[in-house]
Design a protein around this nucleic acid. Sequence first.
RNA 1: GCCCCGGUGGUGUAGCCCGGUCAAGCAUGUUAGCCUCUCGAGCUAGCGACGCGAGUUCAAAUCUCGCCCGGGGCACCA
Length: 490
Amino acid sequence: MQARHEEKGRVGLQPLRNAVKGKTAFRLAPEPSGYMTVGHAMAWTINYLYKEMYEGELWLRFEDTNPRKVLPKYYDSFRRGTEWLGVRWDHEKSISDDMEIIYESGRKLIELGRAYACSCDEAKVKRLRFEGTPCEHRGGSIDADLKVWDELLANRHREGAYVIRFKGDMQSPNYSLRDTNLFRVISQPHPLTGTRYSLWPTYDLANAVEDEICRITHVLRSSEFRDELQQLIRDALKFRRIEVIQFSRFNFKGTPVSKRLLRPLVEKNVVSGWDDPRMPTVDGLRRRGIVPQAIRDFTLQVGYTKTEHEYDWSMLLSINRKLLDPVSKRIFFVPNPVQLVVEGAPWKEVTIPFHPQKDLGARKVSAAGRFHIPSTDAMTLKEGAVFRLMDLYNVELSSTGAPLKAKYAGDGVLPEAKKLQWVADDHVEATVSVPGELFLDGGVYNNDSLKEVAGYAEKAASSLEPGDIVQFPRFGFCRLDSPGKFILSG
RNA sequence: GCCCCGGUGGUGUAGCCCGGUCAAGCAUGUUAGCCUCUCGAGCUAGCGACGCGAGUUCAAAUCUCGCCCGGGGCACCA
């Protein structure tokens, strides 16, 4: 009988099995074949929180064993993204740094009779694996296999001539255990090691070895892999057992992380790039004004499970807004502005604080009776309506033509009057991009996924720096992307 | 086809291992209201879920069996 779990509900992350404080090690193991996505960011967060919880070590380890797929800019993407996230790693390496060590393990497997060289072509391998029958190479002599191995290391065989296969179980109901490939020749130069190596390990072997030499104790990763083969390889090489915890991918509604779907959008310039604010990349999230803490809080709230899920952006955005609210300056932005002339208005200069509660400073605005207000509000106003220009004074609408005309109606706040944001003559032009979901339910591109709203912002907006996030009252939180161009965060 | 893994409100989760305290908690969403010189934040209230069927039991979201549905693996990708 096990002891009943005492935890009531889940406060943070659930405790890990076999985790001893100060004696754990975790890994972030991206393949540098694409940009870092929100999915990585969430997996990183989970690993990082555990690393902190157990005072462990954290590796950033690039899984770059396929020279055909990896590119230098992707390594950088992960370094930048991970840093931006606030996830600090203790060690960094690339598997391509460790080829000699991995070769040792490869040779050892052959010496132990647990791996062999096979020259069957791909189709034959596939057929035999399906049938569950071994090929003639499986029972060959260890010496002959070692000879081929040395030739492979000496780069004496063309690509495709030989592979090294793990001696698994050709009858296993789990097909991935039927003598899977461990090494193959790839003639394409590697971005980090050039032409020095041409015999490359596959994922399962590389990971088994690397997790051993990094002394990894806990692997937390998404579940697009099966673990049995790696365990068998570890056993064969007398490696330690490690805890593997899998969780399903972090998918967002309308925004698949799949490169297959995203790449065409970039290539056809449907989006502005991999950092388009609609993209599920960390660069995209950053441009959109999602702050790192929001990703951390969100990850903590949704946790990790094996259930298939499709997150809704609204939850992340809600968390983000709550983080932004106390630190964001309020600046007026008038979308689709229409002119308003206030007759008989006194010239007035007001000092408006940038935040209603927090002390974020203030700006001075002078008003001489000529304004712009949002057209959507103007349309609902009837003659005689009394409303307030926020933080300035009240007016009474006298005519609805263009420009709108109104009379000054006093300074005091009228609780029941509608309050509108406004800009004076010294406004600056601004546009706000409103990102939406990239794909509609059927998986087709959403033509409406990015809307542009043009308008005027008050002069104070011109002193903002790209990257600053402000709140446009009655509009939303926006991040300044480039001069005059904002992106709506939520 | 074979092999894993899942299925709790619109969405994400808690609860399941160890059956009763669950006519099911939290968040998000949505509706109504309060507060606020914002359609933000905050506060209050309402809405909304145990995939289906059988079985075990005094008692099933929780255990058993069958079915259905979803995801993944079965690469000289990771």
